[in-house]
Every structure is written in structure tokens, then in C-alpha cells.
Nucleic acid binder design. Sequence first.
DNA 1: GATGAATGAGCATTCATTCAT
DNA 2: AATGAATGAATGCTCATTCAT
Lengths: 178, 178, 178, 178
Amino acid sequence: MVEGPPLRADAQRNRARILDAAEAVFAEFGPRASTEEVARRAGVAIGTVFRHFPTKDDLLAAIMKRLLTQLVEEAGQRDLFAFFTLMVAQAAAKKTVADLLAGSGMNIRLPDAVGHLEEAVGRLLEQARAAGVVAAPVRLAEVMALLASVCQGALHGGWDEQLQARTLAVIFAGLKRY
Amino acid sequence: MVEGPPLRADAQRNRARILDAAEAVFAEFGPRASTEEVARRAGVAIGTVFRHFPTKDDLLAAIMKRLLTQLVEEAGQRDLFAFFTLMVAQAAAKKTVADLLAGSGMNIRLPDAVGHLEEAVGRLLEQARAAGVVAAPVRLAEVMALLASVCQGALHGGWDEQLQARTLAVIFAGLKRY
Amino acid sequence: MVEGPPLRADAQRNRARILDAAEAVFAEFGPRASTEEVARRAGVAIGTVFRHFPTKDDLLAAIMKRLLTQLVEEAGQRDLFAFFTLMVAQAAAKKTVADLLAGSGMNIRLPDAVGHLEEAVGRLLEQARAAGVVAAPVRLAEVMALLASVCQGALHGGWDEQLQARTLAVIFAGLKRY
Amino acid sequence: MVEGPPLRADAQRNRARILDAAEAVFAEFGPRASTEEVARRAGVAIGTVFRHFPTKDDLLAAIMKRLLTQLVEEAGQRDLFAFFTLMVAQAAAKKTVADLLAGSGMNIRLPDAVGHLEEAVGRLLEQARAAGVVAAPVRLAEVMALLASVCQGALHGGWDEQLQARTLAVIFAGLKRY
DNA sequence: GATGAATGAGCATTCATTCAT
DNA sequence: AATGAATGAATGCTCATTCAT
């Protein structure tokens, strides 16, 4: 990985503001929101956004990476079911992750960040299996698939807490007694 | 529902061709595909598309309605698990349904069509419960939620047949032993 | 060559106005002039320009083709020296031809149009040789090279009539007594 | 000419590096190359470029001046025909001179430097006339015009050595037997 | 003096929608 | 009813230039 020189303090501040703004804007309007809107909300000129992220896809990828990293950290502090529940609860707030993990037309590759999340979930899965709360034949692939699916569903379906709980209950039951 | 005068024969033919073209185009490129491309594939002029569907959203809604109607018919001929499996398998082919059920930025309301689908699935659920293959406390709401979620997941995740089968297996197990 | 259906009358009128405007604008400001300026001068909206010429390069190529075609016609009615003189005299007015023949960074290929011009000059050269006013060993390649060079020179140098005449006199003398 | 205080040693070094970089960059990409690219290749920050040359045109003018000065020196060591040949051969390498002598959209005035070149060529012309290899009535103006033209032609036309030789042969013959 | 981040006007291009033919 | 040309707001991106560090 090529690292440039450390950013100047003001540049670092702007980079963070842009990422925050982008996360909010894309969460609200989806990845089709305009880069201008991101700049406006970050309080910088459009050129500044493009200096930090040469293309819109770079910006989206950066948000994704940050969100996924947060998720990996959160995974370290929970069991599989709790993590599942957390992700679903946050899905709406993290519209961007859900949408972009899904790949809505953007050219974004995040093998590393996604890989780390998969590893983290893998660890949770092993613990769950060891604790006897997930059946032996359940593999990581379908757990990831279910996770992604339910996040999408929650995100777009606008589930209330009840519905979310009942839907997850079905999945958790299935994982336990596969 | 307000019905205008019956369409002229050629107008009716054009309407159908536009819907077919739109289904194909949006399935291939997603809802961001241009209306011009739809017109081109339908072999009509762009103005004709807009005469039949005053906005792009109207066109998308019309496709959705048609697809949902087909789904309702297919639901009548299957049991719950088979219908689930069919929908997931078709998710990629019907990118539009999945995306738009999800509401990717478009302003589309289809209460009727979605309602009919929900009723159809409700009937399958009752049959499944009666047959003892779905646990009593499982409600329609979470079944619909799971259905929508897994379609989204399959669509965007590019699942192979194996993964699809294993993922559905978890859900079916959960429905049975909730 | 693929020919679409014949253009509607209004479209044909606009196409011509755009070409005229483009010729004038690019003659005045060079190929870097904005497409908006062309639209403005043509009295059409920017979208109309892009409907007729999907990229800026297409527009530039179209101008070039038209100008080169005119030149070929003019070549048919003159002898070699007169044609040389005419082209130089028009160089400034046809800045675009000169600049783009030179290839100022644009991605334009006009093999046909340029080829036709070369053929026309070739015919003039043969006549001149037959008339004994051009030495036998002079080839078409260097005549074209001189033609292009002197056009560029006249264009950018802002020659007055005297200078133009004296410069061409040197070249004509060289062609005669090579 | 107004001279400021003498430059600090590092400033002088930077000025030279910027000019070298600019010459290379503009030779490679033409005058449309970005000033950032020049800074990058010079190994300085963009601000430094603009401190030394307040506008891009100033930078281009400075390169021109340096190149023209070199040409004047080279003129002193050659006869007219050799100088002509040298310039044409170098035209591609010195894209910038050719382009900017031509004035491709930039606002650049270099009366002094161009004047010196003209004087140098004037001396070559007198020597050639005295040696009887250029006809008496040939004036400096058309010699300069031919020089500029052929440089432009060679530059943009991508002539090979043969074509270059044959084209110059016509001009030299014309100069001799005007 | 040097640095390099920020600015913002400007550009090519797209596309839903309108309307004259 | 169909056609397809015209519209023009919007978007991603560039780059000369300024100015805080």
C-alpha cells in the first residue's frame, strides 16, 4: 500500500468533514446523490472533494471502508446473534453500506474491507457453534448471505422493531436447528 | 380506478411492446437505464413512451405491477417453499422487481399489486401451517420480509445454486421449528 | 456508410446552423472554444448540439469534412498554383482546418476527406507537370507537406498579401526548377 | 527591463528546474498540459511555480524565450540551409516553440526574443546571398515565414526524414532561383 | 521563500420531459 | 396517435489561481 506524506491538519479536518457529509448524504439519498450536495453539506468547495477523492466512486469506496471497519470492531464485542441484530438495526442508518455491498451500479471494489468483515463474522460463527447455538453444518457463506439479505430487507422495507425481531427469530431458529 | 376510452389496437400493441422492452432493459441495466433505450428496444419513438407512461416512474410502476401479477399467478400453483425458491431463482432475471420493491430512489406506490401478492403468499402460508411444515406462531409479515430480503440478497449477491439452496435451507428450517 | 432516415426539415436547418456557428466559433477561438458558445451562436440549446454531434470531436470532424469537401471542389476549378494561393488566402478564415489537419490534441480521424483532397491535389500536380510548370521529380507527398505548412504559417503568422505572395513565389520557383 | 533583487540560490535553482520540466512537459503534451504536471515533474509544489511565473502564460513565454535564445546561438554556427534543416528536425522536440510561435490561444508576446532570432537569420541570409546560394530579391520576411511554416508542418505532420528532405529541397531550390 | 490545500468558474455530456410536425 | 427534435437543468470532473500554514 502506498502511503503519501501525512496530511496537513486542515486537510485532515476537511477529509473527515467530507466523509461525514458523504455518509449522511448518501444515507439520505442513496449513492445517486450528487457530489455537489456532499460538498455543500461538508462546507467545502467542490474542488476540495475531488482533491481528496478523485472520483465519486473513490468517495463511495472510502465511506464503505470506514463503515465496514466500524462493523468489524463492533463484531469483536458481540456474539453472532447480537451482531446480526445490530447490523439490521443499523441498516437504515447505513443505507450506503447496504446499497453498495449490493453493488448498485457503481464500480467499487473493497475486497480487503469486506474480507475483514467476513473474517470477523467467521469468528463469531465458530464461537456460536462451540456454544451450541448454531448447528454444525451451517457455513460462513450462507451466514454472510443471510446477513446481507436481511440488511437489505430491513433497509428498504422500513421494518419496525417487532417485525425486525420476528424476522430475525426465524433465521436464528433456522441457524440453531438446521 | 378511472378507465379512459379503450385504446386503439395499435396503441395497445405499442403499450405491450414498451412494457416488454422496459422489462428487458431495466432487468439488464437497472432502473437507471435511459428511457430512450427502452424506446429504441421497443421500436417506438420516445414520445410514444411518454404518451403511454407520463413519467419514467409510471413506466417502472407498470412493469412492477405486471411482474407482481405474474408472481401471484405462480403462487397459486406452488407450495410456500417452492414459491420462495422460485422467486429467489428469478430474482436476477427480475432485477427490477427486487430493486423497486426496495424503492431505489424512485417514487413508486403499488399498494394494490403488492397487496395481491401478499394475499397469495398468505394463502400459501396457511396451507403450509395446515400441513405442519411451518410453525404456528409464524406470521405473514415476517414471511414477506424474508421473501423480500432473500430476493434482494440473491439479486445483488450473485449467488450460485449451492449458496442459494443452503441459504434457503436455513430459512425453511427456521420457519418449521420457530 | 450507414445512413439513417432523412432528417426532418427543422432538424436539417438546425444542423446547418450548428455547423455554421461551429465553423465561425472555432475559427475565432480555435478548437478549444466551448460547445456552449457554439450552441449560443447557433441559437439552439446545448442538448441540440449534442443530439446532432454526440461528442465535441464529432462536431469538429464534421466541420473539417465540410471544409475539406469545399476545398476539393475548389481544386477542380483551378491550377496547382492558384489552388495553393487560394488555400493560403483562406487559411485564416479556415483556422479550424489548418489547426485540426495539424491535430491539436483532438481525436479526429478523417482519412476519407483528407484522402479526397490529396487525390484532387494529385490531379493538379499531374496537370502542372504536363504543362511544364512543375519539375518532374516533385512528388505529391512534398506538395501536400508544403501546402499544409504554408497554410499553418499563414494562419498563425498573420501574413499580409505581399508577404503571402513573396513566400509562395519562393515555393513556386522551387517547384518549377527543383 | 526592470530587474528585482537577485534571487536566492535555491530560488534560482527552482526556477531552472521548473523551466526544464515545463519544456519537457509542454513538448510532450502541448500547451494544454496542466501546470500541476509541470510542478510534479520539477519536484516542486504548485505554489512555487506560480511564485516564479504568476500565470501559465508567463511560464510559456519564459520557455519560448529560452528556446529562441538557444536557436539564435545555433544560428551563429551554421549557414542558412543548415539552420533551416536543423530547425525542422528539432520541430517535434520543440513542439512548444512551434505551437506558441503559432499562438495557439495563449496570450504571449515575445518581441525581443523573436527579434533576436530574426536578426540572426538575417545575418545568415546575407551570407547566403553573398555566397550566391540565395537569389538577390529574396527578403528576410519570406525566409522567416517559410521557416515558421515548415516547422509547423514538420511538427504536426509527423514527417519522416525523406519527406523532410524533399520538402526542404523544394524550398531551397526556390530560394536559389527565385 | 516554499508548500500544498482550497477555491470555483468552466466544460463535456446525459436524460427526463415537452411540443411542433 | 405517433414521431423525434429541442429543451435545459444537472452531473462528474478539471485546472488556473489564491492563500493559509
